[in-house]
């Protein structure tokens, strides 16, 4: 998240010209805190079609391999050249619900974060 002013770098410490040298460093910014609904995956309904993955605006659905613990269990999955459903990146998922809306087998549904608050106490 945004740091306090005294934690920020001085003008001599940053690259000139406003250039950002570290590609993709926005990954450190955790947009998962925005979420009010959480996608939940049901492997027993999932075919690993990756339609959720392609539609995710936040790169928050991981492309898993044959050993993915979250992979779908419907159909043949174990081809090393093909991705399987690899779970959600909850650090970045904003909870928009597109994955649940586009899933052809209804293997994802959205739950209010409050449900997880109750279970996990502080989250």
């Amino acid at each position: 998240m945004v740091t306090e002013n005294h934690d920020k770098k001085g003008w001599k410490e940053i690259p000139i010209g406003g250039i950002i040298e570290e590609a993709g460093n926005a990954e450190r910014y955790k947009t998962g805190t925005w979420r009010s609904f959480r996608p939940v995956h049901h492997p027993e309904k999932c075919t690993n079609c990756m339609i959720c993955w392609v539609n995710c605006p936040d790169t928050a659905i991981k492309a898993g391999d044959v050993n993915s613990p979250d992979k779908g269990l419907v159909g043949k999955n174990d081809d090393p050249n093909l991705a399987n459903f690899g779970g959600f990146d909850y650090e970045h998922c904003k909870g928009c619900g597109i994955c649940a809306a586009v899933c052809p087998t209804k293997a994802i549904d959205m739950h209010p974060e409050t449900e997880f608050l109750d279970k996990e106490g502080e989250e």
């Binding site: 926005a26 990954e27 910014y29 947009t31 936040d58 928050a60 990146d89």
Partner: peptide
């Protein structure tokens, strides 16, 4: 990559 601040959805 992720961590951008586009609106959800």
């Amino acid at each position: 990559g992720p961590g951008h601040r586009m609106c959800p959805g």
